[in-house]
Deep mutational scan, measured.
Amino acid sequence: MPVRRGHVAPQNTFLDTIIRKFEGQSRKFIIANARVENCAVIYCNDGFCELCGYSRAEVMQRPCTCDFLHGPRTQRRAAAQIAQALLGAEERKVEIAFYRKDGSCFLCLVDVVPVKNEDGAVIMFILNFEVVMEKDMVGSPAHDTNHRGPPTSWLAPGRAKTFRLKLPALLALTARESSVRSGGAGGAGAPGAVVVDVDLTPAAPSSESLALDEVTAMDNHVAGLGPAEERRALVGPGSPPRSAPGQLPSPRAHSLNPDASGSSCSLARTRSRESCASVRRASSADDIEAMRAGVLPPPPRHASTGAMHPLRSGLLNSTSDSDLVRYRTISKIPQITLNFVDLKGDPFLASPTSDREIIAPKIKERTHNVTEKVTQVLSLGADVLPEYKLQAPRIHRWTILHYSPFKAVWDWLILLLVIYTAVFTPYSAAFLLKETEEGPPATECGYACQPLAVVDLIVDIMFIVDILINFRTTYVNANEEVVSHPGRIAVHYFKGWFLIDMVAAIPFDLLI
Rank of each mutant, 00 (worst) to 15 (best):
F29A: 01
G149M: 06
G186C: 05
T162P: 15
T216N: 09
S55L: 02
S320K: 09
C39Y: 14
L256W: 12
E365H: 08
G236W: 05
Q11Y: 12
P334K: 07
F163C: 15
D46V: 05
A85I: 01
E134V: 06
L107V: 15
G47W: 01
C265G: 11
G189C: 10
V279L: 11
D144Q: 15
I19D: 01
P334I: 01
Q84R: 15
A217L: 14
D286H: 15
R326V: 11
P251K: 13
H254P: 12
A203Y: 05
V122A: 14
M291C: 04
G345H: 11
P141F: 06
Q84T: 05
G262V: 14
K166V: 01
A282H: 14
E365N: 15
L311Q: 05
P227G: 07
V41Q: 01
S26I: 01
Q376R: 05
N257E: 08
S264I: 14
I330W: 05
V115E: 06
A160W: 15
R56N: 01
V36Y: 15
L343T: 15
E214G: 06
L86T: 10
A211G: 06
P227C: 01
K373D: 06
P386D: 05
N117W: 06
L324T: 12
R73L: 09
L210Y: 03
V194T: 06
L315D: 15
S140H: 06
S209C: 01
D46C: 01
L311M: 14
I330S: 07
A382P: 14
A97W: 14
E118S: 08
K135M: 05
V325A: 14
R76D: 15
G187I: 13
T13Q: 12
R312Q: 07
E134F: 03
L86A: 01
K101L: 01
V41Y: 01
E23F: 01
C108N: 01
V138L: 14
V195E: 01
V196Y: 04
N12T: 11
Q81G: 11
V94T: 14
Q376Y: 11
V138F: 05
D197M: 01
A40F: 05
P347F: 04
L267W: 11
P205K: 04
S354H: 08
K364H: 15
T17F: 11
D199Q: 05
I358R: 11
P157H: 09
I358Y: 11
L170G: 15
A193K: 05
H143C: 15
P245T: 06
H70F: 13
R273E: 09
S322K: 11
P352H: 02
S182G: 13
Q11G: 15
D67Y: 03
Q11K: 09
E372A: 10
L86Q: 01
C39M: 08
G184C: 06
A160H: 05
A121V: 09
C49A: 06
T216R: 12
V279T: 07
V41F: 01
G262Y: 15
I333Q: 15
P114R: 04
I19Y: 01
A190V: 13
G226A: 15
Q61T: 09
D136S: 14
D102N: 09
G24Y: 07
P251V: 11
A223D: 09
I288E: 07
Q84K: 12
G184P: 14
K93A: 13
R92F: 01
R62G: 14
N146Y: 15
E50S: 06
